[in-house]
Structure formats: structure tokens, C-alpha cells
Design a protein around this nucleic acid. Structure first.
Lengths: 205, 205, 205, 205
DNA sequence: CCGTAAGCGAGACGGTACGTCCCGTCTTGAA
DNA sequence: TTCAAGACGGGACGTACCGTCTCGCTTACGG
């Protein structure tokens, strides 16, 4: 993910790929140990056995580095078919919750989101590196439920997109809020109650 | 909100209440202008016409100060009776969204929540200063809906509390996520769609 | 020694004499413990069981306070008649050296002298409180030596004063320099050699 | 004079020699303008166009810095052969007095000596940087006088060293005391009278 | 014998400087 | 051209004292 114009012929010594990996790994370790606010790039560099210059050659700053370091965690997210819409929702909720429970994610995610409120390029980076990785699960889950006949097929593609976004904000928002703001665990019991609410609504049975 | 045992006789010159107010006001102004990460306590102090020591005598650091500075914004939240559950939910969503749109809140809220993942006293402070102020709206809205007959009376008070917490996480989480992560506006149209989803569920009508 | 226009009628509560004494005593104790540069007026005040205001009402600052605190040590200096000029010189040298060996004097004297290079009132205060107390010993020693016939009577009083000043600078300067700059002890052996040099000169037998 | 083991191979960017010189020069300028007690390292750094960290990387604090800044002044001291012991003494006295008259020396010397009473490493630094530079003049003057036959050759080298130390304390002490404590000028007239006293003694002709 | 004016301990106040930490850039010499 | 090393100018940190200013209370004197 580090920068560099994609297709340049390049001269001189090539950049070390090992350094990249070491830096991202060191960043996650430092996040776990120190948390976002006490993480320093000098410390990351020395953990990675790398000079600060090497680090700055690849990332613009702490925010960008941390987004990249944390983004890989979101690659693990999958949506195995559990047979029903309710089970799929519960599954994704628990999976996301498990990810949010990892200390490097917990401390970093809200911090970079906070920074992104005043930094458009960072927001974009977060969107492509993290948010989209989550959102595809929603889309996948919906089409699967439609295939099962649990949800109606939407005709209007724009309306379909709006609804997917809404559901995504509701699911991800609820899990994040429960975990970080309310600081309560997202366990199976909560996931079940949340799923029932989401499917049936307040007025539900 | 600054510390100090509430009712001690106290010797010596008393602390200036004017200083407290000036500091909190200056903090909000600095948040708007600079955002969370570039806000410095030295700058806040000089904006407030106050010495840094005065500031540190009252607050332990940036996090605590910002929580107090932002907390007052949440006092404005109210839940006027709009006649129906759906209207009440829409109202609270829009109200909360309007608050989150204020730059001092937007930049500060997620940042202090991020910090609080590694700082239990801070989490507590956030809970009492901010979260509880929001949660009472949920409770109020529910009892009003129950009085209207829109929602059934819960027998078990523990279950009632759990449900209220769940709804709170869903509502607040969705609004926050839409605003800060998806970075899309929470307008009337979104509020309507969200409300319909919350009341009727995915499977709704 | 603290200030206050000498003969005012005065109204209100009179100043506590005990406080004065406690402050000076606390100052000496703090000098011994902390040395000049780490001595703070706040610390002196709390050692003396006195408020800072009380201290500032009497002394303008650290320099003035320390001069007064140390000055009393110089009251002890005397010149008992030891029977000869040489013995008297040795006596005064050893006495002055003993005083300079006290930690409160050692750490304070050069410091206030250093400050006085840029503070005329302080220099005057040092002169009257400390220097004159030493100089009278030179005058007394000389007149005694003249009475014994060891030194000739000077006719010109101006020349006599100049010579006394010269001798004072030589004696006091040598002892101070030996003690503080060379950091070597002024013992009897050194005092003897110094005295022989002073009386007989470099060319002396 | 700043620290750092003299001959190490060293990796990384070397320290700037220009910064060293600029800092020492700025220190002398600040001493002249502000005096010892109002000199701040932050001010020195900004006068030198240097960051505070650069300064602290080289010197442990104000004392060490000032000793180094002032030490170079003592390199100027020389003892041209003026043909006789008396003339040589007068020469060195006047030279030393001229140096002490420079405001950067006057304000700084006593201050660091005062500090050195509680700081052995500082005392050592003063000794090697300043005191030894002066003492060699005494040794040179003596051997010259012995060559002229004005002073006897000492047989015992230990006794010779003791005598040289004594003379050094007397000469330097007298000049310092006259200048800083008595705050009177060391002019030719005083130098002449001092020299006559030193050579001939009190009992002298 | 009582009011009033100053002194008192306490401690908050606006400041200044401290010495440290980290930033992001730069300058080395080696690879 | 990159790399590890580390010095650089800069800015903020949180602390320590400064000397001043309220506080509410003694404490002596003079009317």
C-alpha cells in the first residue's frame, strides 16, 4: 500500500520489501503495547530495525501508516453461508466484534476516524482500505438472502445501494458503539437480540 | 466539572469560576479552529487568558478537558413529544446528527472515545458526562411510546434495561457511523428510512 | 535587617519578630541542604512555617534574604591579641577560613557577590553587612602592630586607608581563592606560609 | 570542549562544528547583555540560531556551557618578558584585571565558582579550563625570575609547587577580591602597590 | 472595649524557563 | 538510489518557582 508512482522504470537500489513488512508488523505490535496516542514513528522504526527515513519514504505520517497496518486485519472478514439471513447476520456481527476486540484495532480505528474528520485523503484511504472491505459483506449477505427468498429483489439499483448503505451503518455502527462507547461485550446473546431487532423491528412479534 | 472535593471549607484564595468558563469556551473555539490533534493546552490557556498552571490545576490533560468542554453540548438534547414513536425517533436522530455536525463535536468525540480504550477513568468520565445524557432520551421515548400503546410494557426490568441499551447502541451507533465513517449526511430522508427500518425491521411490511 | 522605614508610628498588627528569626534560620538550613541555586523562597517559607507573603513583605528577593541570613555569621569574627603581628595574621586567616568552610557560607558568598556585579544596591548591602565586618579586623590588627612597633605609623591618612584596603584584598582574596577556586584547605601550615610571605615578601629571607 | 569521546569512528550525521561556535559566541553575548542569572538556555539557543536540543546534546546545563564560553578568554593571557620580576607581576596583574573587567567574565566567573562548591565535576572543569591556564603564568614568571637571579632556585620540587600555588592564590585572589568584592578598579597605581607589597612584604623597606 | 488597620497562613493567579520528547528533514558513509 | 545512523531546527509537553493577589482569620493599638 505504500506510495510510489505505479509504473516507473526506476534506477538505483530498489526498496526493500522486507522493510515494508517489518514496519507494518512493528506498527501493530506498538499499537498493542502503547496504544494509538503513545505510538511514535521513531519507536516503530527502531522496532522494525529500520531508519526513520525509510519509513517516511513510504508513508506520509502516523495516520497513513496505521491505516495500512490495521487494514490487513479486515481481509480476514468472510461471510460463510450459515443457512439463513438471521444466522448470517449473527455471524458477521460476531466476526466484526472479534476483530474490534483485538487491541490494535480497538485503539487505532476510532483514532484514525477521528483524524479523518479533518483530512479528506485520509478519509478516502480509510474508505478504500477498510470500509469497503466490510461493506461487501453486507452486499453478499443480501444477495444470498434474496436467493433464499428471505428478502425481496430490489428493482431500483439506486434504492438498493441506499438500503445497503443504511444497513451497513446500522450494523457496523451498533457493533462499534457497543464495543467502544458503551464498552460492553458483543457476545452471542447480544448478537441474537440485535439480529432479531434488525430483522423484526421494534414492532416485531 | 473540574475536580476538587465538592464541599470542603477550604483555606486560601478560591479558584476562579470565571477561569473555568473561559477555559472551556476557549477549548471549544480551539477545537473548531484546529481540530483535536492540533489543539494544544498552551494555546487553549493563552486563548482563555489564563496560565497553563491554572489549566493543569483543574484538568489532568487534554482528554479530560475536551470531554468537559464538549459535554455541555449534550445538555441541549431534548425529546419534544412529536405525537408518535416514529416521529420521536426521527426527531432524536436529527437532533443528534445536528450536534455531531458541529465541528467541535465531530473532531473531538471519536478522539476521546479512541483514547478511552486505554484509559478507564476517562471512559467513566465520558459515560457520565456524555453517554448518560443521550441514553435518557431513549428511556423517555420508550415510556412515551408505551403510554401511547405503541410499544408493549416490559415486565422484567433487567430485560427492559438490556433492550434500552441495545436500542441506544443501534441509534447512536448508526448516526455516528453514517456521519463519521461513511461521511454522508444524516438528513430527513435518511432519518425516515432509518426509522422505518428500526420500527419495522428488514422484514418489515 | 529587614526593611521598613525606621521610625513610623504604625497602626495595625505589628510584624512578628519570631517570623524574622525563623526565616533567617530556615534560610541557613536550606542553604546547607540545597545550596544557593536550588534554594527557593517557597521552600524557605514552608520550612519557617510562614507564608510566602510574610517573607516578601520583609525582603525583596533571594539575594537580600541570603545576605542577611549569612551576615550574622560574620559577627563571630574577632581578633584576640596573640602577641605579634604574625600570630595575629595567622589567627585572622584561620578564623576566616573556618567561617568559609561552613557550607552555608561557602555556597552563598560567591553567589551573592556574583549577583552583585549587576546590582548596585545588593553590592552596598554586602559591603555594609559583610565586608565592613571583616575589614575592621585589618584596621585593628594594624593599629595593634603599630602599638607594638612592628609597623611604622602612617602619616597620611589617605595612604593609610589605601594600604589597609590593599592588605584586606590580599588577605581575604587569598583565603577565598584558596578555599573556593583552588578548593584546597586553609590549614595552619598554609596560614604560616601565607603569613611569612605577607610579612617578608617574595624577596624575604 | 563539549563532550563526546574524542576519536570514535561514528555513524550518522556528524555534529556541526559551526553550531558549537555559534552557541559559545551567543553565550558570551547573552552574558554581556543579561548577566549570569538572567541568561537562559532557550535564549542562547535562539541567539545562536540553534534548537535547544542541539545545545543540550553538547552541554549538561548552564554551568558547563558558561565555563566553556568563558574559558577561551583565558587563552589570551600571556606573560611577555618585561625585564624584571616586578614588571612581570605588574603585567600579569593588569592583564588579569583587564580580563575580569569584561562583563561576560565578571558576571560569570564568580557564579560558576559558587556553583562549583556543590558540584565536583564542575569544579574539575573549571580547574582544567580556566585555573590551569592562569597558573602557568605564575610558573613561567618564576622561572624567568630565577633565570634573572631575582629569586633563588628551589631544590625541593614539592615545596616549589606549594609556593607557586600560594603565590597564585595570593595574586589571583587579590585581583578578584579587589574587582568583585571591593568593587574598586585595579589600575596601574594599585598594581604597583600590590607588587611592592608582594615582593617586599609588609615589613619591606 | 471596640473598631480598624495591618499582619498572618493558605493557596490560586499570570507568567517564564525548564529539560525532555517527538516531529519530519538533513547529512553522513557504506552497500 | 537506498539504507542505518544520528544530528538538525522546531514545537509542545508537564513541572517548578516566581512574585502578586485574594481569601478569612488574628492581633494590637488608639479613640
Amino acid at each position: 500500500m505504500p506510495s510510489r508512482t505505479p509504473s516507473a522504470p526506476r534506477a538505483g537500489r530498489p526498496r526493500s520489501a522486507a522493510a515494508d513488512a517489518a514496519i507494518l508488523e512493528a506498527t501493530r505490535a506498538a499499537l498493542v503495547e502503547l496504544g494509538w496516542s503513545k505510538l511514535t514513528l521513531g519507536d516503530v522504526a527502531s522496532r522494525a530495525g529500520v531508519a526513520k527515513t525509510t519509513l517516511y519514504r513510504r508513508w506520509a505520517g502516523k495516520n497513513e501508516l496505521v491505516v495500512d497496518a490495521v487494514a490487513v486485519l479486515f481481509d480476514e472478514l468472510e461471510l460463510p453461508d450459515r443457512g439463513s439471513l438471521a444466522a448470517d447476520i449473527e455471524g458477521v456481527v460476531l466476526q466484526f466484534a472479534a476483530l474490534l476486540d483485538r487491541p490494535e484495532a480497538k485503539t487505532a480505528l476510532m483514532a484514525v476516524v477521528a483524524e479523518s474528520t479533518r483530512d479528506e485523503p485520509l478519509r478516502e484511504r480509510i474508505r478504500t482500505s477498510i470500509v469497503e472491505r466490510q461493506k461487501r459483506l453486507v452486499l453478499e449477505g443480501r444477495s444470498r438472502a434474496q436467493a433464499r427468498g428471505e428478502l425481496p429483489l430490489e428493482q431500483d439499483p439506486a434504492a438498493a445501494a441506499r438500503t445497503a448503505d443504511l444497513i451497513f451503518d446500522v450494523v457496523a455502527g451498533a457493533v462499534v458503539h457497543r464495543t467502544l462507547v458503551s464498552a460492553e461485550p458483543v457476545d452471542e446473546e447480544w448478537a441474537t437480540r440485535f439480529t432479531r431487532l434488525l430483522i423484526g423491528g421494534l414492532a416485531g412479534d
